[in-house]
Each structure stands twice: as C-alpha cells, then as structure tokens.
Amino acid sequence: MNVANEKLMIELSLAELREIAGYAVACAEPALTIFERDCPDDPRARAVLDEVRRFAAGGKRTKAIRVTAFDTHRAARAARELGLEAAAEAARAAGHAGGAAYLHPLAKATQGGHILMSAAHAARAFELDAGGTPNVGGDYIKKATDLAGPIVVQVLTRYPNAPSGRGRVGDLWRELDASLRQLAVGRQPIGAADQNTPPS
C-alpha cells in the first residue's frame, strides 16, 4: 500500500495494540544498556519501558505511558547535548515504545513509525556505539524482523509503506518496513497466491 486516504480508518483492536507495544519494547530494550551505561543516573528510559510492558501484558493504557515517553525524549535530548549520540538514540528507541501504545487507526505512513521507530532508533544506537558501522544497524534490523510475530506483521501491512526522509534512522525504518512486508508475503497461506489463477 503506497497511497492511502489518510482519513481512512484502519481496523485495530486493543489486543493488536498490546502486541505492537510489546514488540516495540522488545526492540528498544536491548539498546537500554547503552543509555544506562552512558547515563547511569537517569532512570527515564527504563521507566517508559516498564510502563509500556505493563500495558502490553494486559494493563490499562495510562497517562503514565505518555508522561514517561515525553520524559524519555527529554532524556535523549540531554544525552545528545552531552555528545552521547548512541545513548540519545537508545533513549529515543525507548521513548518511541511509549508512542507504540498510542498507534492510531489512520491510514498515514507516519503511523507506521509507532510500530517500527523503536527498532530503527535502537539499530542506530548500536550502529553509533560501534563507531557508525552500517552493518551493525543492518544486523539489528534483521533481529527486529525476527522478533515480529504474525500480528505485528498483519497490523503493519494495513498501513502505507514507510515514508521517505529522516536520515539514517529513516533508512533503517524503511529497511525494516520492507523486510516485514516481504515476510507477510511469505506467511500467506499455502495456495493464497494462486487463488486467482484458474486451474489448468
């Protein structure tokens, strides 16, 4: 889906939203070690992941998710001001996990970021931590692809493809988006691709 009516409402259940939130936490959490190593006295990134994890496990979608997400983005800015770029990206990954809990059922390409930006920022954090080696980010995108269960893939494919822009993080987002959409094709039921082909 490349073009969509941005006023179109997309089917999205609470159970699916929990799956998306859980996926975002799983993608962001490995990079938390970078943030906590470089900013050991700052609990904000861990706090948002804890809040989102509770929601993903069946808890209520509370105001605390939004509050801790905004706090974590402030932590990212603080880390960046200190020149801690990898830590800043790790914090952004955690902050976007908070955003995953607020994925909207609107056919906008930017909404896909609520699903995938935690992984993209985590990949960039690992990449920067390794001196900016692109292969490291690409390897993490492969891991994020493997972490995505069928529900995450199904929900993603209801939204338009990832948009252009956003620098290297945008590249990683689009790489993951493409990988998961290809995975969706591979997960079609046997014979699904041939349903419109008349028998010989």
Rank of each mutant, 00 (worst) to 15 (best):
H121W: 09
L116V: 04
A79G: 08
A69D: 07
V48C: 11
F126V: 06
A56F: 13
H96A: 01
V67T: 15
A94K: 00
A125V: 10
T72L: 04
K60R: 15
A93K: 00
F70W: 03
H96N: 06
A107I: 02
E85Y: 12
M117E: 02
A69S: 15
E51P: 10
L82I: 10
Q111K: 02
T110Q: 07
A69E: 06
K63T: 13
Y102R: 04
H121P: 07
A86R: 06
A56I: 13
A94I: 01
R54K: 15
A79E: 06
H121K: 05
R66G: 09
E127A: 05
E85F: 12
A76F: 01
T62V: 14
A119T: 00
A122T: 00
A69Y: 04
V67H: 08
A125M: 00
E85P: 01
R80T: 04
F70D: 09
L103G: 02
E89T: 00
K108M: 12
G113K: 00
A76P: 03
H121I: 05
G113C: 08
K60L: 06
E127W: 08
G83Q: 10
T62P: 05
L84C: 05
T62I: 13
Q111F: 09
E127P: 09
H104F: 04
R80L: 13
R53A: 15
G99Y: 01
A79C: 11
P105F: 01
A88V: 08
G98D: 00
V52Y: 02
I115F: 00
R92Q: 11
A90H: 09
A78W: 13
G83P: 04
A119C: 14
H114A: 05
A125N: 09
A120V: 07
V52T: 12
V67K: 13
R77D: 12
A94H: 10
A100L: 03
R53K: 15
K60S: 13
R80V: 04
I65W: 08
L84W: 04
V67L: 15
A93G: 10
H114K: 09
